[in-house]
Design a protein around this nucleic acid. Structure first.
Length: 891
RNA sequence: AGGCGCGUAGCUCAGGGGGAGAGCGCUACCUUGACACGGUAGAGGUCGGCGGUUCGAAACCGCCCGCGCCUACCA
């Protein structure tokens, strides 16, 4: 016996080594031309500013499980990594750096600033990629991409130009969301609504030439300076006569019309009159367009009042202006009411600043024509969402989609390929044009703006594969097989990839979208730096090992539910990893004379060998089925249960004597072979989940294999590789029941574990008795018996504790004092339980309708169950009677 | 306001028309030939409530109660 492994598994010594070796050996390299079926995933590119958090750990774990599973199942597998330039976030980070040096980006200029960002990226932008390696992600680093790479930038220009040619990209002066702090336009999605305590003010607007005032309510009184109408409902009797008249807009001296609009106005709400500010409110903007109203911008891009707001207010911050407007109205007795009111504030997703709707000339994508095919593709099942219910969310958004504002007033990003000529002409082109096609002028200026980061992300599944070139990689791996990401970016990303993929590749970007849940802390709170409840995956990984973290995340990934993570849980699965290690340790300790190449001798196989082989086969089937159905947690629990409960708890215990040579050299040799075979299979099954420990052990196993082969690229087991053997399953179940019965009696009667006992195993079934007799030695060994008697039910020993199993009775004669009370209680409890089952079963069988309508096999099974319950009850009753008798004799 | 999801053992959650499950925790015992990061045994549940469908419901349907999340332009 050689003890080659330490008692405790130390992941830190193992993980870095394999992470490096797999990559160096090319295990994860995809092949561009290959006869094998392709399987591909493009990684959802994390921001270069980011560091790895639990969400990344989860998505990487899930993707890696599928990628390794498919790779081992013979697919030509590409998992393509990369990062995202994250326009606003990255620009903010670099600007902050500059600020520390007392500089602003405007001081150093655009070119120098972009240079700085690249420097920053070179220095810090790889951090997340390195962290990805540490988790064991089996990505093909040769194909790593960055959204600002030349190739991807070319794809962005190509898409922009083509969409523009097709009339799907246009430039227009419209109301957009503007962040006064970031100084850029935002799309609807980049704005978060936040319920906030505010006020609702009611202001009186005097009707021109009458003694009447119209009361309008507003949450933003400062915008009244830009009002260009007051709207009422066309059917509102109260105001019908006023439509077409004017009001005198307070504080401005302007006269504005009273209009009727059924869409904007709900006559039931408030006074039924609405102030209309087309330049600062989305509803009002639409109303303005319907009625041809003037737009007056009274707030500028920094959130200050413009000259249009009037001399008194110009230059004031929007919130200061609000106070001043209210004060002035108060003085004029035009503020008729103030009440507390819950308002939804729009905030910038990046910096939390209150977003301002502003009139601005921006580039937009006309989305509806792109959305239609993207909707159809999911309707037709060409792309399937998992869990399925997310499809509804996707449809809901796609059906109500609005045009996408894609220009950003930033410097870091893909510059918009549009050039303006002083003559008023605009050229959209792949390359900088030399002269204006309209007037020939050579003084063209490129648009200052860049594109929304999500614009380039939308192209990710094909731009990363080389598009617009028709590369081998693209031909082989598009459409990708799986998109694994968080449900929170269905709209931002998944939907947009669908639209762009269909438009430019003519086919969906991915066949399946697997949306994972959010990782929360143990209390179910969202993890956040401010709350301080963040669990850092790298720290956990250092403490417990990446395998333990991965297995934990995978086990908790039930479809459609948030993951509540705690370090205690990871600890628990670390124990599982250690269990795997120790099973291997035990195995290796018993393989001193093992000959890997020697032919198997199935004739030498024991019942236990046959049993573990068939159990392994079932596990293979379960794991495959679970993975094929995207049920990762089910795969995990099958593996956990098999490895710990079946392999370690029973098989290893059953064969210890054989391995010790008690059954002879041949039996030992075959047992070794089976053990190696089973462990090999288990490691293959485990590998996608716990790649490090499985590879480490596998390399130590004495297997016949080519030099330089890796578990990472070994074959994933198939259920048919191993023999099914129901007879062995039934027989071992008898042994398990017998052993458990003795242990139960021992535990319940407080008999010390070391105390040798005598047990009688009784069964009316001769076959059962034969199995028990054959394996009496094993039972005695595991149950710590000094004597074992197999007999018929009538041969119950005197003064014995009884345990009634399904097919046999276990009796242990009690020497010394028997606690009759406790023993009776135990039996009565068991009796009551079985009686409940029996009655339920009997009730069913007494029901004619059940007999008539239930499927025949259900009825047959029910009859079997009833017979079994009755038999067990009979035994229990007899045991109780005897107990009664002994008890009487005793006293 | 609509939509979606969730209420199962003390905790975290699987399961899902035909004998209530796991992990952790808890109790008792144990240095038994890999593992105390271990072993053995045990306690613990009107499967949120009420109706309905069914021979049969924890599961399917409806309503209700709680808890989350997402979407939305009510001034």
């Amino acid at each position: 016996m050689t003890d080659t492994l330490p008692k405790q598994y130390d992941p830190s010594a193992v993980e870095m080594r394999w992470a490096r070796e797999w990559i160096e050996s090319g295990c994860f390299n995809a092949s561009e031309v290959d006869g094998r079926p392709a399987f591909s995933i493009v990684i959802p590119p994390p921001n270069i500013t980011g560091t790895l958090h639990m969400g990344h750990a989860l998505t990487l774990t899930i993707q890696d499980i599928f990628v390794r599973y498919k790779r081992m199942s013979g697919f030509n597998t590409l998992w393509l990594p990369g990062t995202d330039h994250a326009g606003i976030a990255t620009q903010m980070v670099v600007e902050r750096d500059l600020k520390r040096q007392g500089l602003s980006r405007h001081q150093i200029g655009r070119e120098a600033f972009i240079e700085k960002v690249w420097q920053w990226k070179d220095k810090h932008g790889n951090r997340i990629s390195e962290q990805t390696r540490a988790l064991g992600a089996s990505v093909d680093w040769r194909h790593e991409r960055f959204t600002m790479d030349e190739g991807l930038s070319k794809a962005v220009r190509e898409v922009f130009v083509r969409l523009h040619e097709d009339g799907l990209i246009y430039r227009d002066l419209r109301l957009i969301n503007w962040c006064p702090r970031c100084q850029t336009a935002l799309s609807d999605l980049e704005v978060d609504l936040e319920p906030t305590a505010g006020q609702l003010w009611t202001i009186a607007y005097p009707v021109a030439g009458r003694q009447r005032r119209l009361a309008v309510a507003t949450t933003r009184p400062e915008t009244m300076l830009g009002d260009t109408a007051v709207a009422v409902h066309p059917e509102d009797e109260r105001y019908r006569d006023l439509v077409g008249q004017q009001v005198e807009l307070p504080l401005t001296g302007r006269r504005i019309p009273i209009i009727a609009d059924a869409e904007l106005v709900d006559p039931e709400f408030g006074t039924g009159c609405v102030k209309v500010t087309p330049a600062h409110d989305f509803n009002d903007f639409d109303t303005g367009r319907r009625h041809g109203l003037e737009t007056i911008s009274v707030i500028d891009t920094s959130g200050r009042m413009t000259d249009e707001a009037g001399a008194e207010f110009a230059g004031l911050d929007r919130f200061a202006a609000r106070e001043k407007v209210l004060a002035r109205l108060q003085e004029q007795d035009l503020l008729v009411n103030t009440e507390e009111y819950q308002v939804e504030l729009s905030r910038c997703q990046r910096c939390r600043e209150i977003v301002e709707p502003l009139l601005s000339k921006q580039w937009f994508v006309k989305v509806e024509p792109l959305a239609r095919p993207a909707i159809e593709a999911v309707e037709q099942g060409r792309t399937v969402f998992i869990p399925r219910h997310w499809e509804k969310v996707y449809f809901e958004w796609m059906h109500n989609i609005r045009d996408w504002c894609i220009s950003r007033q930033l410097w870091w990003g893909h510059r918009i390929p549009a050039w303006f000529c002083p003559c008023g002409g605009t050229v959209v082109a792949r390359q900088a044009p030399e002269r204006c096609p309209r007037c020939g002028n050579q003084q063209l200026e490129q648009d200052e703006d860049v594109l929304d980061t999500w614009f380039s992300s939308a192209l990710w599944p094909f731009s990363t594969l080389g598009w617009p070139e028709r590369t081998r990689l693209l031909e082989t791996f598009y459409p990708t097989s799986l998109m694994e990401t968080g449900f929170d970016i269905i709209f931002f990303w998944v939907a947009r990839m669908m639209m762009m993929g269909l438009r430019f590749m003519g086919e969906v970007p991915f066949r399946t979208v697997y949306l994972h849940a959010m990782v929360r802390d143990a209390q179910g709170q969202k993890m956040s730096k401010t709350k301080g409840n963040v669990i850092d995956p790298l720290q956990v990984s250092e403490q417990s090992g990446a395998d333990a973290l991965r297995f934990t995340l995978a086990s908790l990934t039930a479809q459609g539910r948030d993951i509540k993570l705690s370090t205690e849980r990871v600890e628990g699965y670390r124990h599982f990893i250690n269990k795997i290690w120790n099973a291997a340790r035990f195995t290796l300790m018993n393989l001193g004379d093992f000959q890997p190449g020697a032919p198997a001798r199935p004739g030498q196989r024991s019942l236990y060998d046959r049993w573990i082989l068939t159990r392994t086969s079932r596990t293979v089937e379960r794991v495959r089925q679970a993975l094929d159905g995207y049920k990762i947690n089910e795969a995990c629990s099958s593996l956990y249960n098999f490895f710990w409960r079946e392999l370690c708890d029973w098989y290893l215990e059953l064969v210890k004597p054989t391995l010790a040579g008690e059954g002879g050299a041949e039996a030992r040799a075959e047992c070794q072979r089976v053990l190696v075979r089973v462990l090999d299979t288990a490691l293959r099954l485990l590998h996608p989940f716990t790649p490090f420990v499985s590879e480490e052990i596998w390399q130590k196993l004495p297997l016949v294999r080519e030099a330089g082969s890796y578990l990472a690229t070994a074959d994933f087991p198939r259920a048919g590789d191993l023999q099914r053997d129901e007879e062995a399953e039934r027989a071992v179940q008898l042994l398990i029941d017998a052993v458990t019965g003795v242990r139960n009696i021992r535990g319940e009667n407080n008999l010390p574990p070391g105390k040798p006992l005598t047990a009688h195993l009784l069964s009316a079934d001769a076959e059962v008795r034969a199995v028990l007799e054959q394996h009496a030695g094993t039972i005695a060994n595991l149950a710590r018996l000094e004597e074992l008697v197999v007999g018929q039910p009538g041969q119950r020993p005197a003064r014995a504790a009884v345990y009634v199993a399904e097919k046999l009775e276990v009796c242990v004669p009690m020497t010394g004092l028997v606690d009759f009370g406790a023993e009776r209680q135990r039996l009565e409890k068991e009796l009551k339980k079985i009686d409940g089952e029996r009655r339920r079963s009997q009730g069913k069988l007494a029901n004619d309708k059940f007999l008539a309508r239930a499927p025949a096999e259900v009825v047959a099974k029910e009859k079997e169950k009833l017979a079994e319950f009755e038999a067990r009850m009979e035994k229990l009753k007899r045991a109780l009677e005897q107990l009664q008798q002994w008890s009487a004799e005793e006293s």
